[in-house]
Amino acid sequence: MRNLITDVEGISVGQAEDAGSVTGVSVIVPDCPALGAVCVAGGGPGTRESDVLAAGRLVFDSVDAICLSGGSAFGLAAADGVMAGLKAQGRGFALVPRPGVPATPIVPAAILYDLANGGNKDWGDTAPYARLGRQAFDAAGESFVLGPAGAGYGAAAGLAPGGTGSASIVTHDGLTVGALAAVNSFGSVRMPGSAAFWAWPFEISGEFGGARPEPGFAFDPEDWGAAKADPSPRENTTLACIAIDAAVTHDELQRIAQMALAGMARAIRPVFAPTDGDVIFVISTRKREAGGSRPLAIARLGELAASTLARAIARGVYESERQEGRP
């Protein structure tokens, strides 16, 4: 177990960064077309191909990759690079395969805003995102860096450094749930006046430092702690991808995605604000039977998705702070 989303069999992750522009891309790649769903919760999202994951669409069970990127709307071009890599491997959807007609890779994507983080954004006519998307795809594997890496490379979580986090859990009967998050939130991930993360009740084995609130800790409901002092529209976003190996229907996967939103609410305060672009993708590799009573099985997977996402969010910020040398 790596405690990463890649603990889900068949999932790889690749990341790429541009140090000069202070931005990056994360790509989640299943080894076979996956079932996909999405929940858009923030008031200012930026997405691509998210509509194809809705009920009744043609290709919701043919997801070839999920792309998360910095760069605001410029970053949506990262999916172009991912598509190029998939095309080179012959992957994609074709209703009727024909010689000389390429299949179309299905790559839902979402972006966060890192344009005002001090990096050099003077790209001229060509932004770096298609290049970064291809680099991230080519780098995909089972291990990847947390903290200031990938889509979270230039991010900020409230007044703390943001970053890319991941976590996983395996159930007693062998199902695996993994999460990856790029944290660029308006809200704070820590309790006001405390070193404890909001997600502390879900922490496993000290994975994000083990800080706990003091006995009797209380806070003013109007105190948001270290949230950003001056949020601007579309500038504050947490992007996430959940992967599961349980075989579920599309409707069931959509319910899991909706339940997974609780993971963001457990880890960030405030969340889903008008200035946020929060998006969660959920994909299933369908490699294992879910087992048990169907409604209870889906409730179980949704709860595990939420708690695992909360852990991934805290890990992303914790790893960024640790690598910066913060206490």
Rank of each mutant, 00 (worst) to 15 (best):
A94S: 14
Y113F: 15
G75F: 03
P105I: 03
D80F: 03
Y113M: 05
A84N: 14
A110V: 08
L53W: 06
L112Y: 10
D31I: 05
M83Y: 01
A84R: 13
G70Q: 09
G81T: 11
D64N: 15
L86N: 07
A55S: 15
V107H: 01
C39T: 09
I28G: 11
A37P: 08
L68V: 13
T47L: 01
V107E: 02
D51S: 14
G46E: 00
V40Q: 05
A55H: 00
P45V: 06
A109Q: 10
R48N: 11
P99W: 08
V101W: 09
V27C: 08
G46D: 05
L115Q: 10
L53F: 01
I111T: 15
G71E: 00
A109Y: 13
R57Q: 08
G46I: 01
A94V: 12
L115K: 04
P97V: 02
A41C: 03
I66C: 10
A37L: 08
P33T: 00
F60S: 13
R48S: 06
A88T: 06
A88S: 15
R98V: 11
G42L: 08
G90E: 08
Q89E: 15
I106G: 04
L53T: 03
V27G: 13
M83E: 15
G92M: 02
G92F: 07
G71I: 07
A88Y: 04
G44Y: 07
A55M: 12
P99T: 12
V38D: 06
V59P: 02
C32K: 15
G92Q: 03
V63E: 11
E49Y: 09
C39F: 14
V107R: 12
A55E: 08
V59W: 07
V101S: 05
V25S: 04
G46C: 08
V82Q: 05
F60R: 09
L53D: 07
A84C: 10
L68A: 04
A94G: 02
V107A: 13
D51G: 10
G100F: 07
A103N: 04
L53Y: 12
V82T: 13
T104W: 02
L76P: 05
L115H: 03
T47F: 05
A41K: 06
G75D: 09
A103H: 02
A79E: 06
I28S: 05
L115D: 03
Q89R: 13
A110R: 02
G85V: 02
